[in-house]
């Protein structure tokens, strides 16, 4: 079976895997941020990703398929999701931070149920699709094999987001405060910083990333109910193998997940979805606390 896999096909598949990694990284870094600073295992993060994709679709529809549609959607969708998360955070979550993990997990799961049905109410249960702008459509050739332009675009976006997050957490004031709050929230409060608003900001940034991931994935697949179920479990596993709250851990985890997935498609397509889970289990057997240092 492996004999007919050429080096070119292998490279192509790796590149496709890397562009999937980009989406996984963007979504799971948001989850990791929220988990690291707020200590909320946010199950509805996947729902926000789905909502991001649907908003992107609607935004592009409103503009009536003009080439600008996609770019507007790319801005509107994450902002819309951020707005939703602002309402949820200020309305409900800010009162629940002291609860134990299990309660928070179930609370966010309740929101996942609600959001899932709300999406069904607003957008119906049909498949939707969003096409990439003309400049990103089509293929160019790599090693003599076609490689979608859109995937190349994703490969550019990934490092950009990683750099942005690094800049945010290391170079800006809010990033520094949030890292301090992750370690010792009482102390941060004691020096006169309004921790509650720092948490809100971090939560919104995390959710923004979920929305961005949703908008970016929209042109590559059907936008459908159930997107939330698929992504959230992957994002959680990535965060866990990377080390809770560690952005670079999320990147590493996403790489492992994306690459094992694409290698799986290459060697044994029927059981491709099994490969990433095996990788996760192997990592956790040897590094139970994750590959990189957790902020906890």
């Amino acid at each position: 079976m492996t004999a007919n896999i050429t080096w070119a096909a292998f490279s192509q598949q790796i590149l496709v895997g890397l562009s999937k990694t980009t989406i996984l990284f963007i979504v799971s870094s948001g989850l990791s941020l929220v988990l690291g600073v707020l200590r909320i295992p946010n199950v509805f993060h996947g729902s926000l990703y789905m909502i991001g994709a649907f908003i992107a679709y609607s935004a592009a529809m409103v503009l009536g398929g003009s080439p600008l549609g996609f770019w507007v959607a790319l801005v509107v969708a994450p902002l819309g999701v951020a707005l939703i998360s602002l309402i949820v955070e200020r309305g409900l979550f800010c009162r629940l931070y002291e609860r134990e993990h299990l309660m928070l997990l179930l609370f966010t799961f309740a929101f996942m149920l609600v959001f899932g049905d709300l999406v069904k109410l607003v957008w119906g249960s049909d498949y939707r699709s969003l096409s990439a702008p003309p400049i990103l459509q089509g293929y160019f050739s790599i090693f003599g094999l076609p490689f979608p332009r859109y995937n190349a675009f994703l490969l550019l976006i990934g490092p950009l987001v990683a750099f942005g997050l690094w800049f945010l957490t290391n170079k800006t004031k809010i990033g520094k405060i949030s890292r301090a709050a992750a370690v010792d929230r009482e102390m941060v409060g004691a020096v006169g910083i309004n921790v509650s608003w720092v948490f809100a900001a971090v939560f919104i940034i995390g959710c923004f990333l979920a929305g961005l991931g949703g908008a970016l994935v929209a042109p590559t697949q059907n936008i459908t109910q159930g997107m939330d179920h698929a992504i959230i479990i992957e994002a959680f596993l990535i965060v866990i193998i990377g080390g809770l709250g560690n952005i670079w851990g999320a990147l590493l985890g996403a790489l492992i997940f994306g690459l094992t997935d694409s290698i799986g498609i290459l060697v044994w397509p029927q059981f491709a979805i099994v490969f990433p889970y095996i990788a996760v289990v192997v990592v956790l057997m040897f590094r139970p606390q994750g590959l990189l240092k957790s902020v906890w």
């Binding site: 179930l106 609370f107 309740a110 929101f111 899932g116």
Partner: peptide, 12 residues
């Protein structure tokens, strides 16, 4: 599931 979710949110 919407109704179930709302009940759960209220409950918690």
């Amino acid at each position: 599931t919407l109704i179930m979710g709302i009940i759960l949110i209220l409950l918690i």
